[in-house]
């Protein structure tokens, strides 16, 4: 999985759902129908994105649409909240803001 590390989330059940494929930073990942984008990504990799303000990787925090830590972007720049956006087959996502607007001071 390269720099994105091994999967962070562990599936404990509900694994007989249909498989779907989506693309994250150009890499194809397999997810299950009914996954949130956050779960789709974190069952394949170790992080969602990088902090704009520090050196650390980020992987979401509240999972209830309150903290906004889980933003990812579609290839054409639309921001999505990964925790409450369903994963759909064929989605292409990037985990860095397409027009990053300020320097990371870390």
């Amino acid at each position: 999985m390269g720099s994105s590390g091994q999967a962070r989330f562990i599936r404990l059940g509900e694994t007989s759902r249909a498989r779907i494929a989506l693309t994250v930073d150009g890499e194809t990942i397999e997810a299950l129908e009914g996954d949130s984008l956050l779960v789709a990504i974190l069952t394949a990799r170790g992080r969602l994105r990088r902090s704009e303000f520090g050196p650390e990787a980020r992987s979401g925090f509240c999972l209830m649409a309150a903290c906004q830590d889980c933003w990812v972007w579609t290839a054409d720049g639309h921001r999505l909240r990964a925790c409450d956006t369903p994963a759909r087959a064929g989605l292409s996502l990037v985990t860095e803001q397409p027009e990053l607007s300020w320097p990371n001071r870390a």
Partner: peptide, 25 residues
């Protein structure tokens, strides 16, 4: 607490309840 893998308790519960996942090994 800023590190990846730290979740709110409610978040940890949602991962399990809504998605049948644990937040880690």
């Amino acid at each position: 607490w800023q590190h990846a893998g730290v979740y709110s308790l409610g978040g940890a519960q949602i991962a399990l309840k809504a998605q049948a996942c644990a937040i880690g090994r």
